[in-house]
């Protein structure tokens, strides 16, 4: 394939995937407000458009037009760069998520923007960079709330990333690859082939850790609006605030996508006879089901205390994940011989 078509193919796919992701982010905020409202016997946004459907657009426009305030005493450069450090890793991870079976397009194959053979490693490497955005944003704001939020976030992300990393090792042992496409294809052919049934413990630890990793209730220590105003982005306004917001929701969608790929068969249909439905629909369905789960637990549980959070991460989740790896490794060894 020529270089030109490769680039063109990549650009087209990037545009489509980013468009879908950003649209999902916008409507994730809407869905969250609506679902939470229904859970609390309210209606949620109703004014802009029918049933408030245009609310995300109105919010976006509002954030665009707001004044961009940099607090006095803030480190201007880091303050300005932090939201971008936060946002880019959240979006860049989608490059390796396979959204459909490989199809031919412009003489190349589509289905993923790029099918890295170390896709998972790539996503986790970038997810760790995202934590810097949070910590730097909190530090550069020159505000005690932001600083405390940033510090908490640092501690939390480091401990829970470990849990996520350990949870997926079982899946890697089963599919013997780090490429997300290979992992998906390994779960081909009906929902009983999904990793969920072989790795239920890993799935649970992954989901819990993912909630903590994306700073969502009940683990939203870095934000904790009742104690820390808004946590690390207390001092942010306008577009920069929107970047942090986007990053949080993009991260949520990314970890949900990843959970669908790792445990729920990604774009594979749950049964053979449903194969006529295109793959990206299944991926979207699974991802949105997980996103609904995120909102659901936000509507159910109160925030945990910071020491409980750390204790839970280090004393429960990490040992459980380690034992899971051990059991899986022994199981895989026995089956292979």
């Amino acid at each position: 394939m020529e270089l030109g078509t490769t680039v063109l193919l990549a650009v087209i796919q990037i545009a489509v995937v980013m468009g879908v992701v950003l649209l999902s982010v916008a409507y994730m905020t809407y869905a969250e407000r609506k679902v939470l409202s229904f859970m609390q016997d309210r209606l949620g946004p109703m004014e802009v458009g029918p049933w408030g459907l245009l609310q995300p657009i109105a919010d976006g426009l509002k954030l665009f037009m707001k004044e961009d305030i940099i607090p006095s005493g803030a480190n201007k450069i880091i303050f300005a760069v932090a939201p971008i450090i936060c946002l880019i890793p959240a979006l860049i991870g989608f490059a390796v998520v396979p959204y459909s079976e490989g199809f031919s397009l412009l003489g190349g194959t589509g289905g993923t923007i790029t099918d890295l053979n170390v896709g998972l490693l790539y996503i986790f490497a970038f997810a760790s960079v995202g934590a810097y955005g949070v910590i730097l944003g909190g530090w550069a704001s020159n505000s005690k709330y932001a600083l405390l939020g940033g510090l908490r976030s640092g501690a939390q992300v480091i401990s829970y990333e470990l849990v996520i990393g350990l949870s997926i090792v079982g899946v890697l042992l089963l599919s013997e690859s780090l490429s997300l496409r290979a992992i998906t294809e390994h779960q081909d052919g009906g929902f009983w082939h999904w990793n969920l049934w072989v790795q239920p413990v890993a799935f649970v630890t992954y989901v819990i850790a993912a909630v903590a990793e994306t700073n969502r209730l009940p683990f939203d220590m870095p934000e904790a609006e009742s104690e820390l105003v808004a946590g690390f982005f207390t001092e942010y306004s306008g577009m920069r605030f929107a970047f942090f917001f986007l990053a949080e929701y993009a991260n949520m969608i990314l970890v949900s996508c990843l959970a669908s790929v790792l445990f729920l068969g990604g774009y594979e249909a749950p049964a053979e006879f449903l194969n006529f439905v295109p793959g990206f629909v299944w991926l979207a369905l699974k991802t949105w089901a997980l996103l609904f789960f995120f909102i659901w637990i936000r509507g159910t549980f109160p925030r945990v205390r910071f020491d409980q959070l750390m204790k839970f991460g280090w004393k429960v989740l990490i040992p459980v994940a380690l034992v899971n790896i051990l059991v899986t490794a022994v199981g895989v060894y026995i089956v292979n011989n």
């Binding site: 679902v35 409202s37 229904f38 859970m39 609390q40 016997d41 309210r42 209606l43 659901w296 509507g299 159910t300």
Partner: peptide
Amino acid sequence: LVFKQMFKPYCT
């Protein structure tokens, strides 16, 4: 419980 609550009519 929260899931069931979702299907109750709104009171606002």
